[in-house]
């Protein structure tokens, strides 16, 4: 049994998570059909997926990549130019690993949007390591007289989830259930 699994993980065509959940190899993004990059904005790109959408975010450091991923999330919900920075919310997240941290960070923001109706456009990551994050988020409460909400985002998923080094910085990828 053990041997068979070892063989699978060696085969580059077959990406397998073994116990500790190794991330998918980089080509998984490119190979995933129906997923096309579009709408390049500063620091993140929207990924298209047949039924859903995702974000690939870049940063010089992890914090910047995570901040850009959050901006990418809110860009799916609303035109970010329409959001004012009139309030601030501090968030602390802990998770078992860096990729889970990305999902939990984004799901925290979705939860805050859902419950407190807050839209954020700017994020300062005060601290980040592989299992925790402290962030300061700037935005405002939804005002339907000014805000045209585009898409509801149900959750960030673990599908094709990835946080990795990219050039001299970091890249973070996540797919949302829309």
């Amino acid at each position: 049994m053990q041997d068979r699994w070892a063989q699978i993980t060696r085969d580059p065509r077959r990406s397998i998570y073994v116990n500790g959940f190794d991330p998918l190899p980089a080509y998984a993004i490119i190979e995933s059909s129906a997923m096309v990059m579009s709408k390049s904005r500063e620091g993140f790109q929207i990924l298209e997926h047949t039924a859903d959408a995702g974000v690939t975010a870049y940063g010089q450091d992890l914090g910047q990549a995570f901040a850009n991923a959050a901006a990418g999330l809110f860009s799916l919900i609303i035109d970010l130019d329409r959001v004012r920075e009139s309030l601030r919310r501090d968030i602390v997240i802990t998770a078992p690993g860096i990729e889970s941290l990305l999902v939990e960070w984004l799901n925290e923001l979705i939860y805050i949007f859902d419950v407190d109706n807050l839209l954020f456009k700017r994020f300062e990551i005060a601290h980040i390591d592989s299992t925790s994050l402290r962030a300061r988020c700037y935005g405002e409460r939804v005002d339907l007289s000014r805000h045209r909400l585009k898409t509801g985002v149900k959750a960030a998923t673990y599908h094709l989830l990835k946080v990795e080094r990219h050039n001299s910085g970091y890249r973070a990828q996540v797919i949302f259930d829309i």
Binding site: W5, R14, S15, I16, Y17, V18, N19, G20, F21, P96, S100, Y158, H159, L161
Partner: peptide, 14 residues
């Protein structure tokens, strides 16, 4: 996600 490790379950997608 925690249970997968606890019960030693192997999956191709998280």
């Amino acid at each position: 996600n925690q249970a997968v490790s606890r019960y030693n379950i192997r999956l191709p997608d998280r």
